[in-house]
Design a protein around this nucleic acid. Structure first.
Length: 130
DNA sequence: GCCAACGTTGGC
DNA sequence: GCCAACGTTGGC
């Protein structure tokens, strides 16, 4: 799952662009999670702050490479394309109300901007959004 | 706009 | 290497 503040970079903008590079991660844990993403992996796209909901699914088309927006070699970016827009967004409230999802990173560690999801958690959210 | 959670920085 | 101070994120 990746998070973005909609006023900074929204799902709608992502759809319009057709592709984006996921940069600007400046947190080691988030960076490590980014690094584990492989080509063709799917990632839920979450709007933080405004909306607070999962709005779509993105697909990785390029695995972690050095973040082009900084000279600092520690940081990486990945390239994403939109894969699927959820029929209805899954809100943070929905997720909190689903016992099976109570332990996901989104709840446990709110500040983390990139986090892993187990396959069944991913599937559950997708199911709730369709 | 406030505040809690948490990561990072810097003094010792 | 510890810990206090500070900054940032994100939910409410």
């Amino acid at each position: 799952m990746v998070k973005s503040e909609p006023h900074k970079y929204s799902w709608q903008q992502f759809l319009k662009d057709g592709q984006t590079f996921w940069d600007g991660v400046r947190n080691y844990q988030a960076r490590n999670n980014l690094s584990t993403m492989k080509t063709d992996d799917l990632a839920l796209f979450y709007h933080s702050n405004e909306g607070m909901e999962v709005v779509g699914i993105a697909r990785v088309i390029r695995e972690a490479y050095p973040d082009p927006t900084t000279d600092d070699a520690r940081w990486v970016a990945v390239d994403l394309v939109p894969h699927h827009t959820l029929k209805k967004s899954v809100t943070l409230v929905d997720i909190k109300n689903e016992p099976m999802l109570a332990q996901i990173g989104l709840i446990r560690q709110g500040r983390l901007s990139v986090m892993p999801l187990r396959a069944e958690e991913f599937d559950k959210i997708v199911e709730m959004g369709s």
